[in-house]
Write a protein that binds this DNA or RNA. Structure first.
Lengths: 136, 136
DNA sequence: TTCTTGACTTGGACTCTGTCCATTGTAGGA
DNA sequence: TCCTACAATGGACAGAGTCCAAGTCAAGAA
């Protein structure tokens, strides 16, 4: 499952051991890690990797469109590697768990022109909130 | 337009000069202020008010359901006093302006049971992103 | 009105998340 | 192999928010 690494190399992303480890941490795992969690997992394999490097790499992966930045709680941003499959998020208000979900319908179509106030609307994020089975 | 003050008093919210000023700043203005902006406006009327007090008051207004906390950019949270009229937000990706909008449809109904994974879904937030007329 | 008391406010220290920058290191092409 | 532009480092810094001990005060009781 190293499609991500492959794509990055093809796109000319200069590959360093640090960047490889960050990409590997995100690839495969379908969880939503914070930058610090990514750093912790990366450091498990490459102990001397710095926080700044992890932030740089994450920022570039986001710019490249390979990873999505999700801020579900106003605290640390989370990084979602599932960028190539449109989806929304379901968040547990108690423990913060995030799941990818696929609602029906198209929320963009639900915003009539009269409610756009001249904005060029490019994207829509939907966050469902509730309690997960363990917290309920 | 001091419905808010009235409601708070009725609900037994102990009224201090600091809390009154914070509530007054939010009441009436249909903008989406950050905590620091609320503090600045409150301090214009009550110079010695502290940041901690503003944070406390805002947190309580949110708990009471009188104000909604909105985190549109992963930076400072914004406080939306329009809590009694269901609405969503339209955010300018360039300047950060936030507008209240009223999409048609019910996004909660768009999440089928099979996509809820046992969660008790209580709320849904929709954020439209794009460029406002000035930034486009 | 004055007293009393529990709730509120203060301000400074602290935490967490993220950014910046000068220095050092290195991937990958010539 | 050598160069060099680009990347990594780590420590300082900044913004947003929380915590806490000490002082203050709103509002009910007498």
């Amino acid at each position: 499952m190293s499609d991500l690494l492959e794509r990055l190399r093809e796109r000319g992303w200069r590959m360093t051991s640090q960047r490889r480890v960050v990409a590997e941490v995100l690839d495969g795992e379908h969880v939503h890690l914070t930058a610090d969690e990514v750093h912790a997992r990366a450091a498990a394999r490459l102990p001397e990797i710095s926080r700044a490097t992890v932030y740089n790499a994450l920022g570039e992966l986001v710019s490249l469109g390979e990873v999505i930045e999700v801020s579900t709680d106003g605290r640390a941003k989370r990084y979602d590697p599932n960028a190539h499959h449109p989806h929304q998020h379901l968040v547990c208000s108690s423990c913060g768990t995030v799941r990818d979900v696929h609602p029906t319908g198209n929320p963009l179509a639900d915003l009539p022109a009269t409610e756009r106030f001249g904005f060029t609307v490019a994207a829509v994020e939907v966050t469902y909130r509730g309690l997960c089975p363990s917290c309920a």
